[in-house]
Design a protein around this nucleic acid. Structure first.
Lengths: 196, 196
DNA sequence: CCGAATATAGACAGATCTGTCTGTTTTTAA
DNA sequence: TTAAAAACAGACAGATCTGTCTATATTCGG
């Protein structure tokens, strides 16, 4: 019996693989983004995560909440990425710098559009928990645009911020369809809008 | 038994209701757009169309092809609408006029985004018949933008056309999330881009 | 060392999905 | 009038979906 303990000790130098919750979320995040939240069933997630069904329902309650957690993770990581991306740029130039990040993102080999837009397309109920998270993120982004356009000293920061939201959405969707060149088009247009 | 025939004659002054194919497509088009192509099952379409399952599979072959027919219909009607909308506008101003149409569309009470974008979000396979139809429509729209920007006499028609594609996509997506005000933002930006 | 918490494994229920097939009824056309 | 074509009605198969439940194994703190 001590043998078991020994093997257990060897097995867990703190964590050889992440905890089951993390594993589930990693897998769900990848599959949901790649194939769509309605196209991917729970059994798929469980199998690829190597987890038990009870674990999923213990940690997330139901599939809808797992989808929401997936969106939540995307939102959190996007915010951190963006903040880090513009941190070394003078505030006045951050709005334009942001579109460099967008271009980079669309050039990533596994880029497949915006998970927030996908979730809105797939889930028609605006009260779905995942959509509530998405809506908050849109407010956050709009707020950032207001902040950056103010810093840039444009004539009408509020209106310009709205325009930049359109440009961002367009860059992502159009790049999903036509490739990253569209994100470059968007960046160029943002420059036109800001540098005057 | 002649009574039956009589009632049949009365019943069909050529067509009191449209043919079954048309009825199916009407219903599918509405449901697919409103709730999503994966969220709506065949039985739903059959029930609301008042049609038999055999009719659906006779006329459309499989669900994927019904989805493609739904997109095809949207594409056809959009082209006709757009052509009609700009017909009385001088060619040089048609690009901008087009964004008036976009604003109108986003103000429609049952506007819920672009069915083509939705289908791309929902169906991850780029070879899905519905996505092939959508891809063609994007080419068509881009071609229109090239035509209109040429007529407008801008410096670089090709580049401007690409930018307008981004603006269009952004207008539709952002309006789906934030309301038609975003389409107005897009129209304003299109004006900035074209009037010089 | 032991009990509580956590995870696994998988059966199960109940619903729903696409697609096929068999009949019956209605419509249409010769 | 009659035969072929079209539509209806719905059973059925087979797969898949979410969510619950039971039973067993593992992990870990006290």
């Amino acid at each position: 019996m001590p043998a078991k303990k020994t093997s257990a000790k060897i097995k867990s130098p703190p964590a050889l693989q992440p905890g089951v919750r993390e594993r589930l979320l990693n897998t769900a995040d990848r599959l949901f983004y790649t194939e769509g939240v309605r196209a991917v069933g729970i059994d798929r997630v469980l199998a690829e995560a190597g987890a038990a069904k009870a674990s999923l329902y213990l940690h997330f309650g139901c599939k809808d909440d797992l989808v929401a957690a997936h969106i939540e993770r995307r939102v959190t990581s996007a915010r951190a990425e963006i903040e880090a991306y513009v941190i070394d740029t003078p505030p006045a130039e951050r709005a334009l710098r942001f579109f460099d990040w967008v271009v980079d993102m669309t050039k990533s080999p596994d880029f497949r559009g915006c998970p927030l837009q996908h979730v809105v397309a797939e889930l028609s109920d605006p009260e779905h928990p995942a959509r509530l998270v998405a809506a908050k993120q849109r407010e956050w982004l709009h707020g950032k645009f207001v902040e950056w356009t103010r810093a840039a000293g444009v004539a009408n920061p509020a209106a310009t911020a709205g325009a930049l939201v359109v440009l961002f959405d367009g860059a992502v969707v159009a790049s999903e369809h036509d490739g990253p060149r569209r994100a470059c088009d968007a960046r160029w247009m943002a420059g036109q809008l800001l540098l005057r």
